[in-house]
């Protein structure tokens, strides 16, 4: 199921939390070789995890992490503005209607529908929170996957090469993206809205269609 949890809420779910950050260490440190810090318990955290971000997490039936991403508002500190302004034409991207999305991560054993489910969770956040765009930092090779999922970002810039290539891109939010992501994730609209409403309160009736 999709969970929408701020860091202080995730702290109340120790198994989910630990598996989230150990899967991040596995993906970003072991598999991609990014310059990230992994602590002695094998967990990957950065300074932005300490800013109480909002995580969208796919929780597997066994309660552990299957995939996740991290949101922060661009009116405060963000990774893009602090470290990647060379990829945004020097534009400090800031707006209450644009959030930053980083650390898109999949567990090694994640089921094939998890990436679509996570994108669906990201879309629910954007539509539910009146956002126009998300600005993201991601492994450049993910672009192919985002395209297959039917929601490719607009690339602002890429640096590094090979598996260390990192891109900054923009996703725009639109309600018509929901139907294809539901189909690709194998989830119903009712359950997706239910998971969102459980975290943020019900904004739209369950019967409403996309």
């Amino acid at each position: 199921m999709l969970r929408y949890l701020y860091a202080d809420e995730l702290a109340r779910h120790p198994r989910l939390r630990k598996s989230t950050f150990s899967d991040r260490a596995d993906q970003f440190h072991s598999r991609l070789g990014w310059d990230v810090s992994v602590n002695q318990d094998g967990l990957e955290f950065d300074a932005y995890d300490a800013m109480n971000p909002l995580y969208v997490i796919w929780q597997k039936p066994d309660g552990l992490h299957g995939g996740s991403m991290r949101f922060l508002p661009t009116t405060g500190e963000t990774m893009v503005n602090d470290h990647f302004s060379d990829l945004t034409d020097g534009v400090h991207i800031a707006s209450p209607f644009i959030w930053e999305c980083t650390r898109f991560c999949l567990a090694r054993d994640a089921a094939p529908n998890v990436s679509a489910a996570l994108m669906l969770g990201g879309l629910e956040v954007g539509l539910g929170q009146h956002l126009s765009h998300a600005v993201g930092v991601f492994d450049a090779r993910m672009v192919r996957i985002y395209r297959l999922l039917g929601w490719p970002p607009t690339i602002l810039g890429t640096k590094g090469a090979g598996r260390e290539a990192t891109s900054v891109g923009l996703w725009s939010f639109a309600p018509e993206l929901r139907a294809p992501l539901l189909r690709k994730s194998g989830l119903s609209e009712a359950i997706s809205r239910h998971w969102y409403a459980r975290a943020f309160g019900l904004r739209e009736p369950l019967a409403a269609t996309a």
Partner: peptide
Amino acid sequence: HTLRVYIESARFK
């Protein structure tokens, strides 16, 4: 899309 984000960022500032 990029232009829209630059405009939105400028609008906010």
